[in-house]
């Protein structure tokens, strides 16, 4: 949407809101990336040599849930920071 009344540079606050929206958009991609890390782990079936042991389930659980908690906290942070005004602005420039 081209609106001539929108100035080229936004106020600092609006600028911050825009970047938070960017973060909100990128968060699921980050989450997907982190959760695809297990693809790199050696599996029971593929482990041949004795020194490269498969990842144990307990560490896998720790990793998966750590990422989960991180994502929930990040989403909490973003949803608190992104106020309702942001959406109004976003609707203009989307």
């Amino acid at each position: 949407m081209k609106d001539k009344s929108i100035p080229l540079f936004l106020e600092r606050r609006s600028y911050r809101q825009r970047r938070l929206m960017d973060a909100a958009r990128l968060l699921p991609l980050l989450g997907a990336l982190l959760w695809m890390v297990p693809l790199l782990w050696p599996r029971t079936q593929t482990v041949q040599s004795a020194d490269a042991a498969a990842v144990s389930t307990s560490s896998a659980i720790l990793y998966m849930f750590a990422v989960w908690i991180f994502l929930a906290l990040a989403a909490l942070f973003l949803s608190v920071m992104l106020d309702t005004k942001a959406e109004a602005q976003d609707s203009r420039d989307d």
Partner: peptide
Amino acid sequence: TLIMVGWWW
């Protein structure tokens, strides 16, 4: 979880 976290999309 990813869909919810990515609600903005």
